[in-house]
Design a protein around this nucleic acid. Structure first.
Length: 760
DNA sequence: GCAAGGTC
């Protein structure tokens, strides 16, 4: 007996997925396409059988979220209510004007269907969009049967498997997103209105802009991003240059000059440096103690994902991440590269990498290399390493169509396409091999080393005691900023560039020609205002707490309502405190204290008699209230709002001191009695840093794949680093040494070296 | 005139 055919409406998150899945399910047999109401979202039609049930399949798509969250009309005007009311003002979801055509397509098609199959991306946002689609479709046809297709890649087996094993949509996932949306909206709108109305008149923007349109926005992603820029700026401001001394040793031969580095690095104690230097000059004969020859491998990069594309385009071309994504989107739309918004940095074993390389063989610049890669005789090919990330929806960014440049391409299109292709070719190449020789010498017990020359025994042609000063870290580059955001979970791969652009658009930061960011007067003042109140609103912590809450909701551990109530209660308490008269005055004065710089200047007319300098005294006068959240019943130590911030201004100052680069060592010297300089005891501790004073922070150097985090060289890890014998940079080692007491070697000078953080 | 998240 023939089963009756059911009509099935299938909906994907984007048009490309509707197309791919339709092609896979129909095996391109009898696949038809027709227009929908929206020009981007076509409708594919084919027949299929789901577990023996004959189906007439209609396959269409949305373009991301179909709905937005907004306050009800009477709260939408800025002066319609106190911004504090926005923590409980009613909100509604609605389909914005530019999505109405998609909504009409869904309604019209849903009316003719018995089943609705949701093919949205299998992440939290996708699950939330699924429920938006359900809302629209069930409003048009309340009898439609709901099913969810769960798939992790757009490949045949996966897709057929998904449709034969349909599941229920996951409300918890969708709830997590609902909670995030509502929190983001309420916090963002309340703080933005508050900040803007309070402070707009305190600044004059030099750039041609209508003052009335100036918005001082607050957002849970844009502010932590601003925070990264300001924090680095403060580290630089707080840096106090410190003089250090070092011994440089060089040897000139027929082959050239070999400059040996002193293995102690930098010494901050002049007297000690002089003593060691004099020892060396008294017995200047240098003995070669070690010659190490080693192969150095330079590993190819991981396959390209969005963040890495943005970082590299910024480093190589100084292209902004926002512009990079715009150009990448255009290349994708024209079919030249794969989908540019992806977290994935591993190729599936099923990807036909050879074919992708084959297509590039005719290119005038890298065509020959592509040919050599494919020639087994060269041994150049190597299957790519995986970086360990997979968003289960898209492959790493790779070329999908050959081009030697198109007529309509700008320079940036060329550059970005070239980056994608070259990166891909590098990924399937074996590591580059280099050789290096490290020579270590000893002069009067002092160790020096040089890379790349072989000499046996000699007297240095130059042995000098030189001085230098410590330098602050550099301003954050766009690549650094992306790394920080990625590390701290601020924004998503698809939105990070938006947050960076927002800081520039709001005049919170400026960017120089080498893509480094400086906070403006305005940006710094906003962060400092909140920081002085003790709130971490500009730190990543708040977002991290929210992310943990979202995870709990998506796992069913907490309910959406519970998270919303708790989170909004805390944020409202914070908002009321920040906008309270006590801080209001101070917050405003804080803005006015900052001297003018960059594009934002302060207006002096409002300066008052006594700029408040201590908020602690003021808040302590409020007896019985928690100084953190202004509630009664607990002290600030037990405050439930604690994750919003500690009122510890000391914290910022400490961070400023943390800002100096590189570990500093203490070297214990034991002097021979006759050599003791005046005011020195037999056992003397001197501070030293080195040998390669790092110019960047650890989190930067860690992002440089394959480099030793100790000496920034390739070919070994920090554990095997040849510079390691200078002293372990291992805190454990330091603690051990401290507990062991002083260990003094039998030599006159030289004892133990151990690490000490610089601020101690 | 506010957010962040999808995607065109």
């Amino acid at each position: 007996m023939a089963t009756r055919t059911v009509t099935v409406l299938n909906v994907a998150e984007k048009p490309s997925v509707a197309k791919s899945v339709s092609a896979i399910l129909s095996r391109n047999q009898g696949l038809r396409v027709r227009e929908g109401r929206s020009r981007y979202n076509k409708i594919f039609e084919f027949t299929y059988s789901i577990r023996g049930q004959p189906c007439q399949m209609l396959f269409t798509s949305v373009t991301g979220h179909l709905m937005e969250l907004e306050f009800e009309d009477r709260y939408r005007k800025w002066h319609s209510c106190d911004p504090a009311d926005l923590y409980h003002a009613p909100v509604r979801k609605f389909v914005p004007e530019d999505k109405k055509d998609i909504k009409r397509t869904l309604e019209e098609e849903a009316r003719r269907c018995q089943w609705l199959v949701l093919w949205l991306d299998c992440d939290r946002e996708g699950e939330n969009i699924a429920f938006e689609v359900v809302d629209v479709c069930t409003a048009a046809n309340r009898y439609v049967t709901l099913k969810r297709a769960r798939f992790s890649a757009l490949i045949d087996r996966e897709i057929h498997n998904a449709v034969q094993n349909l599941v229920e949509p996951n409300k918890w996932f969708a709830d997590a997103v609902d909670a995030r949306q509502e929190i983001d909206l309420r916090i963002g709108a309340s703080f933005t209105r508050f900040q803007t109305m309070l402070l707009r008149d305190a600044f004059i923007i030099d750039t041609p802009t209508d003052d009335r349109n100036l918005v001082l926005s607050y957002g849970p992603c844009q502010f932590p991003t601003l925070g990264f820029v300001v924090e680095r700026y403060w580290e630089i401001q707080a840096h106090e240059p410190e003089e250090f001394w070092l011994i440089n040793c060089s040897h000139r031969s027929d082959e050239g000059v070999a400059n040996f580095s002193w293995m102690r690095g930098h010494l901050f104690d002049y007297t000690c440096a002089v003593i060691i230097y004099e020892m060396c000059t008294e017995e200047p004969n240098a003995t070669v103690t070690n010659v190490k020859q080693q192969e150095k491998l330079k590993y190819p990069p991981y396959p390209l994902n969005t963040i890495e594309l943005e970082k590299r385009a910024s480093r190589y071309f100084r292209m902004s991440s926002e512009h990079t994504m715009k150009v990448a989107e255009e290349l994708y739309q024209a079919g030249f590269i794969s989908y540019p918004r992806t977290e994935t940095d591993s190729f599936s074993s099923r990807t036909d990498l050879h074919t992708i390389v084959q297509e590039q063989q005719g290119h005038p610049e890298w065509g020959i290399y592509a040919q050599r890669l494919l020639d087994p005789g060269t041994g150049l090919w190597r299957n790519p390493r995986g970086g360990g990330h997979d968003d289960k929806a898209h492959p790493p960014i790779h070329p999908t169509k050959f081009s030697a440049g198109e007529a309509g391409w700008s320079q940036d299109h060329r550059k970005l396409y070239e980056l994608v292709v070259r990166h891909f070719l590098a990924c399937v190449s074996k590591p580059a091999v280099g050789a290096e020789t490290i020579v270590e010498i000893d002069i009067a017990g002092e160790q020096f080393s040089v890379c790349g020359r072989v000499i046996l025994e000699f007297i240095p042609t130059a042995l000098t005691l030189d001085s230098g000063v410590t330098r602050p870290p550099p301003l954050l580059s766009e690549a650094d900023l992306l790394s920080s955001m990625d590390k701290e979970g601020i924004g998503t791969d698809a939105t990070m560039h938006d947050h960076i652009k927002k800081l520039l658009d709001r005049f919170y930061v400026t960017k120089d020609s080498s893509t480094r960011f400086t906070p403006t007067n305005l940006g710094e003042a906003l962060v400092m205002g909140y920081d002085d109140m003790g709130y971490k609103l500009w730190k990543p912590d708040l977002r991290a707490v929210m992310e943990r809450d979202m995870k709990s909701v998506s796992e069913g551990v907490k309910s959406k309502d519970e998270v919303l109530a708790n989170s909004l209660q805390q944020m409202k308490a914070c908002f009321l405190d920040v906008s309270s008269p006590v801080y209001l005055i101070q917050f405003k004065f804080r803005q006015l204290e900052i001297p003018p710089n960059y594009s934002v200047n302060h207006l002096a007319r409002a300066r008052g008699p006594n700029t408040p300098t201590s908020h602690a005294n003021q808040s302590n006068t409020r007896q019985g209230l928690c100084t953190n959240c202004q509630q009664t019943g607990h002290s600030s130590n037990d405050c439930p709002s604690q994750n919003l911030g500690s009122r510890n201004a000391e914290h910022r100052r400490m961070n400023q001191h943390n800002g100096n680069v590189g570990p500093v060592y203490l070297i214990q010297f034991k002097f021979r009695q006759l050599e003791i300089p005046p005011n020195y005891s037999v056992n003397h501790l001197a501070r030293a840093r080195g040998p390669n004073t790092p110019t960047s922070h650890a989190n930067q150097s860690n992002t440089r794949q394959g480099l030793c985090t100790n000496c920034q060289q390739t070919g070994h890890s920090s554990n095997d680093c040849p510079s390691q014998n200078l002293g372990s940079r291992n805190a454990e080692h330091r603690r051990m040494n401290q507990h062991n007491g002083n260990v003094v070697s039998s030599d006159s000078v030289l004892a133990m070296v151990f690490e000490l953080p610089l601020w101690m």
